[in-house]
Amino acid sequence: MTSRTRFAILLALLIFVDALLLQVLTTETEAVTLIDRLLSLSAGLVAALALHRVLPAASDHRRQPGFWPLVAIGLVLNYGIFATLASRAPHVQPLVHLGFCWAGTLLFGGFGLYRIRRWRN
């Protein structure tokens, strides 16, 4: 399995679990939306990390310098965008905020990966 396919599968799982659990938590619980978002993001990360351990990885791509700090900053950015949108427009559905925050995170991550690859070469 190529590293791009593996990354796409893990990212799709993370976003799917995050969106599904956020929808369930916001409709079924009385908790604050930001806490629901934190729980759904955590569950998505756990699911993606569990699948990360199971899926085979190419031996030359096991350690890519700069990738995990980019992921950590992207997740903080993701939650920050969601918190800002949820506090500024609480009348909008949380899944709309989720879509915007994942779009911003993917743009940030894509630009970051481009910069890392350009710096290495």
Rank of each mutant, 00 (worst) to 15 (best):
T2H: 08
R6I: 09
L14Y: 06
I15P: 09
F16H: 06
V17Q: 04
A19V: 08
A19Q: 05
A19C: 09
L20F: 05
L22R: 07
Q23W: 09
V24W: 01
L25F: 05
T27F: 03
E28L: 09
T33R: 01
L34N: 02
I35P: 06
I35G: 04
I35T: 02
D36C: 07
L39D: 00
L41N: 01
S42L: 01
S42T: 13
S42C: 01
A43Q: 03
G44F: 00
A50Y: 00
L51R: 04
H52Q: 08
H52T: 12
V54R: 10
L55T: 01
S59F: 03
S59A: 15
H61I: 02
R63Y: 14
P65R: 06
P65K: 00
F67L: 11
V71H: 08
I73C: 09
I73Y: 02
L75A: 12
Y79Q: 12
Y79E: 07
G80P: 06
G80C: 12
I81W: 01
T84A: 15
T84H: 08
A86I: 11
P90C: 14
P90I: 06
V92Y: 12
P94K: 02
L95C: 13
H97L: 13
H97G: 14
L98P: 02
G99F: 06
C101D: 05
C101I: 08
A103C: 15
G104L: 04
G104E: 11
L106S: 12
L106Q: 11
L107G: 14
G109D: 08
G112W: 02
L113K: 11
L113I: 11
R117Q: 04
R117G: 14
R118T: 11
R118G: 06
R118M: 00
W119I: 01
W119Y: 03
R120L: 03
R120Q: 12
